[in-house]
C-alpha cells in the first residue's frame, strides 16, 4: 500500500467535485459537489497523517474539524437554499439572475 494511491484518488475526487460545482444547475447538487471536494481534502489529510505523521496524527484531528465545519456549512447552505426556494420557487442556478454576474 502506498501513499500515492490515496493521494491520486483524492485528487480525482477533488476534480470530480470541481466539475460538479461548475456544471450543476441544481443548487442542492452544487452543495453536494462541495462536500465531495471537502472529502477529497479529508482523504489527503488522513493519508498524510498515516504515512508521514504516524506519531502525532494531527491530520486526523484536522479531518475531524473539517467534518464538523462541513456539517455546519451544509446546514447553513440548505437553509439558504430553502429560503431562496420559497421566494423564487426554483433551485435552478440558471434562473438566479436578479443580480447580474
Amino acid at each position: 500500500m502506498q501513499l500515492q494511491y490515496f493521494l491520486l484518488i483524492a485528487a480525482a475526487l477533488f476534480c470530480i467535485g470541481i466539475y460538479g460545482l461548475i456544471t450543476s444547475r441544481n443548487a442542492v447538487r452544487v452543495l453536494m459537489s462541495i462536500e465531495l471536494m471537502l472529502n477529497a481534502v479529508n482523504l489527503n489529510l488522513m493519508a498524510f497523517s498515516n504515512y508521514l505523521d504516524a506519531d502525532e496524527i494531527k491530520g486526523q484531528v484536522f479531518t475531524i474539524f473539517v467534518i464538523t465545519i462541513a456539517a455546519a456549512e451544509a446546514a447553513v447552505g440548505l437553509a439558504i437554499v430553502l429560503a431562496i426556494y420559497r421566494n423564487r420557487d426554483t433551485v435552478d442556478m440558471e434562473q438566479f439572475n436578479l443580480l447580474k454576474w
Binding site: 462536500e35 488522513m46 497523517s49 467534518i67
Partner: peptide, 18 residues
C-alpha cells in the same frame, strides 16, 4: 478507506456525521 489508514475513530465519525 479511513479504516485502511488505521483511523477507526475518524471512520466512525465519518459514518455518523456525513
Amino acid at each position: 478507506l479511513y479504516l485502511l489508514l488505521n483511523a477507526d475513530f475518524v471512520a466512525a465519525a465519518q459514518i455518523l456525521i456525513y
